[in-house]
Every structure is written in C-alpha cells, then in structure tokens.
Design a protein around this nucleic acid. Sequence first.
DNA 1: ATATTATTCAAGCAATTAGTTGAATACTAA
DNA 2: TTAGTATTCAACTAATTGCTTGAATAATAT
Lengths: 225, 225
Amino acid sequence: MKTPNRRFKDEIYDQFSRIGKAVSSPKRLELLDILCQGERTVEILANETCLTIANTSQHLQVLKNSRLVEQEKKGLYVVYRPAPMVCQFLLSLRKVAENRIAEIEQIKNRFLEGKKGMEPIALDALIDRIQKQEVILLDVRPEEEFRAGHIIGALSVPLKELEFMLTKLPKDKEIVAYCRGPYCVLSVDAVLLLNEKGYHAVRLEEGVQDWHARGLSLASGQSPS
Amino acid sequence: MKTPNRRFKDEIYDQFSRIGKAVSSPKRLELLDILCQGERTVEILANETCLTIANTSQHLQVLKNSRLVEQEKKGLYVVYRPAPMVCQFLLSLRKVAENRIAEIEQIKNRFLEGKKGMEPIALDALIDRIQKQEVILLDVRPEEEFRAGHIIGALSVPLKELEFMLTKLPKDKEIVAYCRGPYCVLSVDAVLLLNEKGYHAVRLEEGVQDWHARGLSLASGQSPS
DNA sequence: ATATTATTCAAGCAATTAGTTGAATACTAA
DNA sequence: TTAGTATTCAACTAATTGCTTGAATAATAT
C-alpha cells in the first residue's frame, strides 16, 4: 500500500480509537453510565463510583479529551454531562457485551441468586396491570432522576426514603420496583427491604432508558402525590 | 455503597470494558473494519494492515477473547470473521467519532484536498442517474467483495484491474467509483487514475455498508458483464 | 517420514495507563 | 482581604500494552 494512503488510514484509525480508549476502562464506563442519568458534579461522581476525587477528575479529563462528555462551570462546581449520541453509543456497547460475553449473565445470576422477587417480569403484562391499578410501581432512584423522566404511573420513592415510607404502602397489593436498569441495584435493595418487611415486592429489571428505547413513553416532573 | 453491591458493579463494568478494550487500538479497529467486508485469513489481514503476522495474530487473539471475532480452521489457514452485531456496533462507534471528533473531518479534507472528483455526491440524484444510465457506476473493491454484495447496477472493476480495463470505458460518460466507505481509498485511487487518463470520474464516498444502512438494497453474485 | 507453510506461543523492551499523594488553582462567602 | 471548598495539576509507582524476535505447533504435500 502506498505510504500516503497508509498514513491517512493510520491517522483516521488513531482518531477512531480515541472513542475506544475512552470506553476501555470500567470506571469510565461507570462514570458515563451515571452521566447518562443526568449531569453530575465531580464530587458526586466520585462518591457514586468509590473513586478518589482526583482520580475521578482525571477520568473525566480523558472522557473530555475524547469528546464524550462536556463540562460547564457552575459557581464553585464543575458539572459534567454526556455529549450527544453518547448514551446511545453506550447502549449499543452494552448490547454487544450482553450478547457476546456470557460472563455477564453469570455474574448477574450469581448476584441475584437466592434473592426473592428478582425474576424477570413480562413488560406488556405489567403495563396492563399498572393501568388496572393492580400493582404499585415504585421508582426508587433519587428524586431528581425521577423528575427528569419516569415511567407513567410510577411513584417516586427514593431508596433512602423507602424505609420511612413503608407505612404508606399496602401489604396486600403487589409492589414493582425499578431503577436505572439491569445493572443498577437500587431496585434490588428496595425489593429485598420490602419483602423482609412483609410486603409482596418484585423487581422490574428494565430501567427508564430501556423503557424509552422500547418506544414506551415516559412522564416527567413532579409525582402527583 | 455496600460492598457486595460495589463488587457486583465492578465485575459487571469489568466485563463491559472488555468490549471497550478491544476497540481501543487503532489497528484492531482496522482489522475489524476489514473483517466486516468479509472473512479473511491472518496473512491477508496482516498484509492489508501492514502489520507483522505475529502481531496481527496477537491482535486477533485479543479480539477473540473479547468475543468480537470468531475463528475457524480451514485446512492450513485460520479464517477470522466478525461476531454477530459487531459490524453494527462499529458503525455506531464510527458515527460518534465522526460527530464528536472534528479532527476526522480535517484529516479527510487534508487528504482529499487538491484531488479532482472527490466532492460529495447527492445520493438520490445518483440513484436516478444510474437508472437512466447517465452514469457508469464502478465497484472498485476486490471481486469477492463485489460478489458478496454490491450496489445494483454497478460494474465490478477491482482497482488492480482498472488499468487494463480502461479501453472498455467510455470517455464521454460520467464515471462514479465507490468502494468500502468514506475511509477506504480504493475509489480515491481509481478516480485519480481515471481523471489522469482523460475520463470524467467522481468518487462516491458512501460504501456498500453505508448504502445498506440507509435502507437501499444491494445485489449479490456475479456481475452481468 | 520429511519439508513446507500458516499460525500461534513465549520472552523481552519501550511506552502507556490507572491510581496515589500532595500542592496549586479557581471560585465563593465572610 | 481571608478562609473555605471544589476541582485540577504534577510527580511518582506499579501494572498493562504494543510490538519485535525467534521458536513451537499444526496441517498439508512430497
């Protein structure tokens, strides 16, 4: 191959690989996943990922240099946000990974094994039962995420507040809890707590993003409580 | 965050990052791109990428371990092929990169600058003109790739044979050459050669994959020459 | 068998990367 | 101005990666 052509290809693939490098670190993938739930400050991201602040900041610089996140200074804080198309790309990566890497299913099963209420739920049946008010649908993510978009008919009960809201929930009705998606464990903890306290709770594996990706509509704003 | 949950997340993101690591190397991206045109042996891949055989083999092992390629022993050769969904994922990565990384456009422009016939072509107008036989559409990829799928109405004239086929082409009709896509240079070289010899040739940037991704149909099998 | 060919393996080097720590910077509030 | 807070930078270490070289393996042909 002629050398100017080779040079061109090398330069082009070097650029493409910037995206690949950005998503080659598990911690950066986790950061991106969180950012796809809504913008965050460095400190919050550090907390959620169990990284030091400096380390988080460095990962964010890497993501910024590969143009996968944007930053904005808001007063004392720096707020990061995913760039357009990034969340979609991440979904595509996740889909390939789930499809190709058998270990993912294994890890999930090992984690959920022995826990009650973790069986997958059929979506269409669920939609039906929500409308008929046969079940109570709980969104156990932090309230701001609920406000940014949630499944129609869901109640916002952040995991942290669930303990104190127990009295308001009926023991005779089935409770379905959901959060960010299959790899978010907020709903797992919620279901465990509820079942322990004598409620009948199950987990909806799909999160808002998956819900939306299936063409199902979301609501946003305050919960009509 | 509770440690079993943290452990779960770390394990899950470790698995996701296997896909990211696989596409974090420019050479592996190039290998995958080539494989998405059809299966190849190690030697051919090494030739096309200007890598040593051993190095190519190692990259392929990495891709195999992240489940992005599959291999099959055929006699003396080992044939590699992309796993299902991989080509689609690659398209998604390319799309993000093109959209977010301005350098890509710059590199492309710098490479094409000063070369005749490289201006982008409007697709719908082209389709029309092909049907009316106002232009001749050349597929300048190796013949086996043409056979695997090509744009309807195209003639298979691999770049290597173009030189010896010149006499069969009319000088008064516009010639449109295409190959694998925006970053494949076969059609660039074809157009340069044709224009040098007095033909009126332009390059179609889109390749078969892009063509297909836009919902336009392809033909396969022999050229009706 | 023996030779040949395509591919993989193993060892080693240079370059890169993830993470830590402590200092520097940038903004806000008193 | 000063003090306090959020973030980034700089220097360093340990681990990983990309690539090379030469040997080992596996299938085929003589």
